[in-house]
Design a protein around this nucleic acid. Structure first.
Lengths: 205, 205, 205, 205
DNA sequence: TATGAATGAGCGTTCATTCAT
DNA sequence: CATGAATGAACGCTCATTCAT
């Protein structure tokens, strides 16, 4: 009993630290995150931060985890009340766009392991990642059942294709915003809708 | 004559420094690039580096420019002797895959300006970027003429869609290599070919 | 209690760092002051210095403030037991001479903000500066009351005149010491006394 | 003959380099002066600069010399057509004010030896300095003859007093400009005129 | 005479991590 | 559990001076 309470209060503290770290990133990007700043924001000492997390990387890992969980939750919410599987696809891709607008630092977290450590993702991150894949797979399977999606589709493969292309498109929107506006004379949202159409068309029979 | 030799030796030195910088990035990512390390690798003093480049950003800018030029060159080479425009598309997308394998740090360079400085890309980088877009546009226009590509296609928009999605797919291949192998039981190259198919299908009439 | 002790030890450390910085300036001028040198002198690491001061400027600011406070204290002490306001003037100008001999780097600190940063002095420095002016003003007012100083004197203006001329005379004594001795056949102290006479005469009725 | 021509052309070159150095200081203060910048401005190589001057200090020394010579020339010009010696004093002090406004970097040069090297001034600087003193001495002697200046005045001593106080007043005007305006509600020129009056009054019988 | 490439110690500043309390 | 002072290597960058040509 006592253990349980302690554990939970430890988790609360952990979560609190993560929230503070998130605030910092939200305001200035991943490069602004430092342990000292987390300490200041949380009003905990630096040493205490290291009591709950082994190192900075672990904090970033947990933030990544959390953001993936939030993303999946958003995906689920985006399709309730929408029976048509193809529309569901549109919906959750669009949910990703909104998610990215709300957490613009998300891709920085996602690409953290690749660009900043060269290390593999830890197991819990892989797992959260696969959860998202499985969500997509289920929607695509339902689409097949509904006869809206071509039968020869490899759902899991397509889930990876969607994941990769969506991340890339959002990065491009971020980095090339000006080029899109000046050369293509389009808006972010119109461009993203073209991307959604690209995906939808390649799913149809 | 003497002038020409001197200028060229200065350019050689510049190129040598860039090569060293590239080596460093190749081995440890953009975050590993520091002037001191370039100095060590090139066996030049720190001051000498600054004789050839005004600051670190200029080095990164040159590397980015060079990689874009190489990419465009690869694109051009990938389509000579291939008359069919749709095949040309396959070819240059695949050329991008090969390019990325050779310059795996490429995307880090691309996103450098946004994520690390908050500044816009300098004009010469934007221009090199647009050159690539225009290459793609021309191939797509030719495809329309050949009756292989749907007439309602917005070529420039599609060039951006290709750019963004291809970058994302290659990143995913890098980061999720293991997941692709373990869960999807596929190879990088097969997965990338699926991506090419996705693009080709969405171009066809 | 514990808090008080901690706070005071932090202040002690701060003061210790300032003392080390002062030593360095005293030995080689303001241009010799560097954080690394302060670290070496204090046997603290560079990082520790930055634990107590935000940046080098803050260190210089504190030294400047301290020296102004010491100067004012010396002024006060120089006039106790001296009822005659004109004598008080002589006394505190002479106190400035002694102060400058003890803190020969003083003028370098004063002109630091203008010549080295182009920035204005921070408010607390301006305030300490004005305190000194107001001390002078009070003495001059008292001199008027005593009928020793001409009634048409603008006290505040004269306090600035004294400030400026005294600084200049002491600088000259420093830089032209040899010329004073060789050409003028006088000593520092005699020359400075002539300056005091100049001031006193221009105050008299 | 040939030697003479060579020497003179060498002097021309030296002068040209000094002019370039002066331009740089004029634009950004003494701290902006670097040999590389002088090289760029003069379109001479760094090595060539070192052919004409042993080190940076020597350049600064020569600039100081030149400015003292210009100052003396201005002093002379300020008193022609003015027979009254007391007015001559006013005139040349005011000429100093104008000189300082035109060459605001002047005091930086003057105090360079003290604050930046701790070394004595070289002989040629001392000599130029004494020339200025002697100019003042002559005017003061003339004033005595004219019966306008008190007979007990030590002219040489007073020339040093003037020199020191004037430099100090101009420094104060520079550094404390804001304080003068905000607290004293006066202008530079009015304040400087008060200083002139202070000097004139202390000269009078 | 003239060049200018090269040096390298130095600068102010940051920050992940440790550890004695 | 919790603290936070302390570390020190690393960063990007500057610049007076040297020296081989």
């Amino acid at each position: 009993m006592k253990r349980a309470r302690t554990e939970s209060s430890k988790d609360d503290r952990k979560q609190f630290i993560l929230d503070c770290a998130e605030d910092i990133i939200e305001q200035g990007g991943l490069k602004e995150l430092s342990i000292a700043k987390v300490g200041k924001k949380s009003k905990l000492s630096i040493g205490t931060i290291y009591l709950y997390f082994e190192n900075k990387e672990e904090i970033i890992g947990h933030l990544t985890l959390k953001s993936r969980q939030v993303l999946l939750k958003n995906f689920h919410e985006s399709i309730i009340n929408e029976p048509n599987a193809l529309n569901q696809v549109s919906n959750f891709i669009y949910a990703y766009f909104k998610f990215y607008k709300e957490y613009p630092f998300y891709n920085q977290l996602v690409s953290y392991y690749e660009s900043n450590t060269g290390l593999e993702e830890p197991e819990y991150l892989k797992s959260a990642s696969l959860d998202i894949n499985m969500f997509v797979v289920k929607v695509l399977q339902e689409g097949k059942k509904q006869g809206l999606i071509r039968q020869d589709l490899n759902e899991l493969e397509f889930s990876f294709l969607m994941w990769g292309t969506a991340v890339g498109i959002l990065q491009l929107i971020d980095v090339k915003k000006e080029a899109l506006e000046n050369n293509l004379k389009t808006t972010e949202i119109d461009f993203f809708n073209s991307y959604i159409q690209l995906i939808i068309n390649s799913l149809k029979k």
